[in-house]
């Protein structure tokens, strides 16, 4: 089990604060709609969750199986 960042995309304002602080460059904002996390890259450090002004990023435990599926 590993911790990963999950974004409530409907609430995302695509400001890019999370993208900016991510040390692994795991976050992108495709088409300026909402932020997306590359779960393969995410190490669950929580920097994005702390920076998000809308507080819509949560860290959740995922199994290694789920990780490879996303």
């Amino acid at each position: 089990m590993k911790r990963k960042a999950f974004i409530q995309t409907k609430q995302c304002v695509a400001c890019g604060c999370c993208m900016k602080v991510c040390p692994r460059s795991a976050i992108t904002i495709p088409n300026g709609v909402s932020a997306q996390v590359d779960l393969q890259r995410c190490v669950g450090c929580g920097k994005c969750a702390a920076a998000c002004p809308a507080s819509i990023i949560e860290l959740s435990e995922v199994s290694n199986e789920t990780q490879t599926l996303v």
Binding site: V13, A14, C15, C17, N31, G32, V33, A51, P53, A54
Partner: peptide, 18 residues
């Protein structure tokens, strides 16, 4: 950066992008 959540320019550009 709480302003970014309500920023009218941010809302407008996100609407354009959507």
């Amino acid at each position: 950066r709480a302003w970014c959540v309500v920023c009218p320019m941010g809302s407008m550009t996100q609407l354009v992008c959507k």
